[in-house]
C-alpha cells in the first residue's frame, strides 16, 4: 500500500516534531502554573499569620506567555499534519477522481476511504441491473483461453 499521496514522509516528520514540542511546552507551562499556585498558597498561609495583606493569585506573565505560545505551536503542528481538504468544486472533484483514482482518496493509514465510489455515474454505463451474465461468462472464458488467466494466477 502506498503512503498518503500528498503527505511526504518528511512533512509528517516535521509536523510530528512540532506537535510534540508544543505538547511538551504546554505540559511545562501547566506544571509551572501548578508549582506557582502551590508556592503562592504556601506563602499566603505563612504570610497571613504575620500580616493581613491579601495575596494576589495571578500567574506571572512568563507562564501565561508560555501557555499561549505552546497552544499556538501545537495548533501549527496539527494543522501541518492534516490531509489537504477535499475539493468542493464539481469539476475539480470529478477531475481528481479521473486523474488519481483511488489514490487520491486515501486517509492517513493508506486505506481507501470507505465512501469512495469512483465516478458515481459509472452505473449508468455499466448498468448492473441489466447485466448479461452469459456474455460476461463467455468473454471471461475467452480471456482464460487466450492465456489471460495464466498471468493472474501466477500473481
Amino acid at each position: 500500500m502506498s503512503p498518503p499521496t500528498y503527505l511526504s514522509p518528511e512533512m509528517t516528520w516535521i509536523s510530528k516534531t512540532i506537535t510534540a514540542f508544543g505538547g511538551l511546552l504546554l505540559a511545562h507551562a501547566c506544571y509551572s502554573a501548578q508549582e506557582h499556585s502551590a508556592l503562592q498558597s504556601l506563602r499566603a498561609a505563612t504570610v497571613s499569620l504575620t500580616t493581613a495583606s491579601p495575596s494576589v493569585a495571578s500567574l506571572p506573565a512568563d507562564i501565561t506567555i508560555e501557555t499561549v505560545l505552546a497552544t499556538l505551536i501545537l495548533l501549527l503542528g496539527l494543522v501541518l499534519g492534516t490531509r489537504p481538504l477535499r475539493p468542493i468544486e464539481w469539476w475539480v472533484w470529478a477531475g481528481k477522481i479521473e486523474r488519481e483514482g483511488e489514490e487520491g482518496f486515501v486517509d492517513n493509514d493508506g486505506e481507501v476511504n470507505k465512501d469512495y465510489i469512483g465516478n458515481p455515474f459509472q452505473v449508468f454505463e455499466t448498468r448492473p441491473g441489466f447485466v448479461d451474465i452469459r456474455k460476461q461468462r463467455k468473454e471471461f472464458a475467452e480471456w482464460v483461453k487466450n492465456g489471460g488467466g495464466g498471468a493472474a494466477i501466477r500473481k
Partner: peptide, 13 residues
C-alpha cells in the same frame, strides 16, 4: 462494495 461489471477479467478472477 462496488458493482463488479466494469472490472477487468483479471480483477474479477
Amino acid at each position: 462494495l462496488h458493482p463488479p461489471s466494469q472490472l477487468s477479467p483479471a480483477d474479477a478472477l
